[in-house]
Design a protein around this nucleic acid. Structure first.
Lengths: 128, 128
DNA sequence: TGCATAGTTGCACTATAACGCAACAAAGAT
DNA sequence: ATCTTTGTTGCGTTATAGTGCAACTATGCA
């Protein structure tokens, strides 16, 4: 039963539901700094929430140089197919604007890769 | 966004997921003492969890004499249709045995109504 | 070799949530 | 009217979860 309650627990947080929405609609992998910029949420929180999604089994991780990309796991079970379809049906302004911000980040990718870090000033790490 | 995170939060607890499973598969209303017997969980917890489900907007309440019946709300949105379809796809032993216990409770209904209270001794209230 | 960039983790704090018990309310039965 | 049955609620306890800050790791660059 934990398998399923963990799925739902993963989605019961707004930050994580927004992340899943980005991954489901875009059908792409996103890196941590892209999530940070799109969602205007500190990197350390992005990182922690992605870890929860990964541990729930919804999301997978791939490291490429300094960047870490997160994407949906390949869906085989009907349960997840339906769950993701359901999430696609959610009509919430915040999810819409997230997708607009996502497009902006895709636009500055270089050959499909995230090379530029965080763009939003207030989210950049403080240079010591 | 809370509408949706609250749906998922409601389902992120094993007790409540089991309740939803009973309501979705049976397409019926169940009363508190039936949930108690089927799930072998104290009435006060059953009652609290049903309240959470009701507040999330997934479940509705109907009082009939001393009995209170809970059932799924009528589903209009595609989101809930897909969510409930997803739940139907969950294959977990506990959910299966719950349905067997449900049938036993249906068998002792009188004209479709729950007239007998809790049957399992250890769940009956203590006679003071 | 040192520095910047990208990301993670540990800690303290706060908030939320589940549980058991006991008291309570509401409705019907005696 | 009183008792029984059905269900709810408040309280104290314990466990879990989200946040911000600061320290840390890891990779690449000059």
């Amino acid at each position: 039963m934990n398998t399923y309650t963990d799925f739902f627990k993963a989605l019961s947080d707004e930050t994580r539901l927004r992340m899943l929405n980005l991954l489901i609609v875009s059908e792409a992998e996103l890196c941590v700094c892209e999530f940070t910029d799109i969602m205007e949420t500190p990197t350390y929180n992005i990182s922690k929430h992605l870890k929860i999604l990964k541990n729930s089994g919804l999301v997978s991780e791939r490291k490429e140089g300094r960047w870490v990309y997160f994407g949906l796991i390949p869906v085989k079970e009907k349960f997840l197919t339906l769950l993701f379809e359901a999430i696609k049906e959610i009509s919430e302004p915040k999810l819409k604007t997230d997708l607009i911000e996502l497009q902006k980040r895709f636009d500055i990718r270089v050959k499909g890769k995230c090379l530029l870090g965080i763009q939003k000033e207030h989210l950049k790490p403080l240079n010591t």
